[in-house]
Amino acid sequence: MIQKIKLILTASIFGLTAGCATAEMAAKQTTPVAEKPKLYNETLNPRQKEYPNHLGFNDLHIQAIRHLPPDTHSVHDPKLQMIVHHHCKAYDDGTLLCLMFHNGMKDQDKPIGFEYIITTEQYNSLPEAEKRYWHYHKVEVPRAHATFPDMTAEEAAKVLPAINETYGKVVYFQKPDDKFPLGEPYVMIVQDMPEQE
């Protein structure tokens, strides 16, 4: 919000003298030079502290389709085709926790839930009744056309075998169409989605 207000202010002072084909308007600007943008709300976090002391949920970035509940049981449902971004933190116990964003993870994007990823070994220790909530990544990674957008193909190939031997449980607190989290949180049974192209 603060950034937006700032933006409107700077734009309205200088925009009026700004023509189309030049960037001349800049000549009248008096904003002091800064090295980096302020990442966090300047009033709520004046010293721009980060907890932990680096950005969390940036160890692994996965993109995959078949992670939104479709409106129809059809392979062509646009929701099934949409990429959901998983932004994951890797923990020392071998698990990953991923924040789930249905439209990227940029400044104003909000997560709608998370995927909890555990190793096959950890999965085997779960009670039988629990197992149906989890999907096996060896099967689902190719079905969901999962990609690692921040890695080259070679780098991704090294990580993939480890990811394949994990299971994931997707827990959402919000339906993608809702403005706020309405009703109960739910588990998204990925393996029951219609097959994709």
Partner: peptide, 12 residues
């Protein structure tokens, strides 16, 4: 310089 002309942030 692009966006830098508006924000004066070097990273822009």
């Amino acid at each position: 310089l692009g966006r830098f002309n508006v924000t004066k942030i070097i990273a822009d």
